[in-house]
C-alpha cells in the first residue's frame, strides 16, 4: 500500500513537471497586460486577436498548414511504396537501406537544416517555398516509412498472393488488398508526419526566406524583439493544432497506433 502511495506521488510530480509549464503558458495567453505575467490580473483574448490580425503570423500559420499538408502527402506517396518494397523484398542491404531512410530522425534537425540550406538555398537556389517543402518532406518521410513499415510487418503477405491467384494483377492487388489492411498505419503515419512538420523549428529556421516562413519560425523571430503575451497565444495555437491531431488519432485508431 505504501508503495502505491509513493508511486502516486511520483506520477503526480512527473505529470506536474510536464504539464504545469503548458498550463502557465496557456493562462498567460489570456492576460490583459502587455507583459507576460502569472497569475494574470484580468481576462482577455486580445493577444489571440493580435496573432490573427498580425499579417506575418496569419500568413505563416497558413504556410505551416500548407507545408505540413503537402510534405505529409508527398511523404506518404513516397513512403508507402518504399515501406512496401522494404517489407516485401529479400534485398541484401535491406537493413542498411532501412537505417538510411530512418536517419533523419537520428541526425539532429539543425544539421539537416544546415545541410539543406547549403545545398538547396546556396547551391541550387531553389525557391524558398520549395526548399521548405523539401526540408519538411525529409523530416516527415522517416515517420511514414517507420509506421507504415511496422503495419506491413503485421500483414500476412499470403493474403496478397491469394489475391493474385484469384486473378488480380499485382498493382490492383496492392490497392484492393494491401492498402485496405494498413489504413490504420497510414493514418497514424499521416498524423505523426503532420505534427512533426507543423512543429518543426530547426529545418524551418534555415530554410525560411524573405516573405515565406513557418509559424514556429515566425514565433522564434518575434520572441527575439518582443516579449508580450502574443508569444503565449501562438504557443497555445501550436499546442491546439497538435492536440487536435492527437484527438483525431485517438478517436479513429486509439493512441496505441502511434506507439506501434
Amino acid at each position: 500500500m505504501r508503495k502505491n502511495k509513493m508511486l502516486t506521488v511520483f506520477a503526480v510530480l512527473v505529470f506536474g513537471f510536464l504539464i504545469l509549464p503548458l498550463i502557465i503558458i496557456t493562462v498567460t495567453a489570456f492576460g490583459k497586460g502587455s507583459a507576460i505575467t502569472f497569475p494574470i490580473e484580468s481576462f482577455s483574448v486580445k493577444w489571440f486577436v493580435k496573432v490573427f490580425t498580425t499579417k506575418s503570423f496569419r500568413i505563416s500559420f497558413l504556410t505551416s498548414l500548407e507545408i505540413a499538408m503537402l510534405a505529409t502527402v508527398i511523404a506518404l506517396l513516397v513512403g508507402i511504396p518504399a515501406a512496401y518494397a522494404l517489407a516485401r523484398s529479400g534485398l541484401k542491404g535491406k537493413n542498411l537501406i532501412k537505417s538510411v531512410f530512418l536517419s533523419p530522425t537520428i541526425v539532429p534537425g539543425i544539421v539537416i537544416g544546415f545541410v539543406l540550406y547549403q545545398f538547396l538555398v546556396l547551391t541550387l537556389r531553389v525557391p524558398v517555398f520549395m526548399g521548405l517543402l523539401a526540408g519538411h518532406f525529409m523530416v516527415t518521410l522517416p515517420y511514414v516509412i517507420r509506421v507504415v513499415g511496422s503495419s506491413l510487418e503485421q500483414f500476412d503477405f499470403s493474403t496478397e498472393e491469394a489475391a493474385w491467384s484469384l486473378g488480380c494483377g499485382k498493382l490492383r492487388a496492392f490497392f484492393r488488398v494491401v492498402l485496405p489492411n494498413i489504413t490504420s498505419g497510414i493514418s497514424a503515419a499521416f498524423m505523426l508526419a503532420f505534427i512533426n512538420s507543423f512543429n518543426n523549428i530547426p529545418v524551418s529556421m534555415f530554410l525560411s526566406g524573405p516573405g515565406v516562413s513557418t509559424f514556429p519560425a515566425t514565433l522564434m523571430n518575434y520572441i527575439e524583439y518582443n516579449y508580450d503575451p502574443t508569444v503565449s497565444a501562438v504557443s497555445v495555437l501550436l499546442m491546439a493544432v497538435t492536440v487536435l491531431m492527437m484527438v483525431i488519432v485517438d478517436k479513429t485508431l486509439g493512441i496505441a497506433a502511434l506507439a506501434k
Binding site: 491469394a162 491467384s165 494483377g169
Partner: peptide
Amino acid sequence: IPVHKRNFGIVFQSYALFPH
C-alpha cells in the same frame, strides 16, 4: 504465365482470407 492468369485455386496454410 503469371499467377493471376493461371486460374488456379490456392488454399494457404494461414488461410489468407481478406480481413477487410
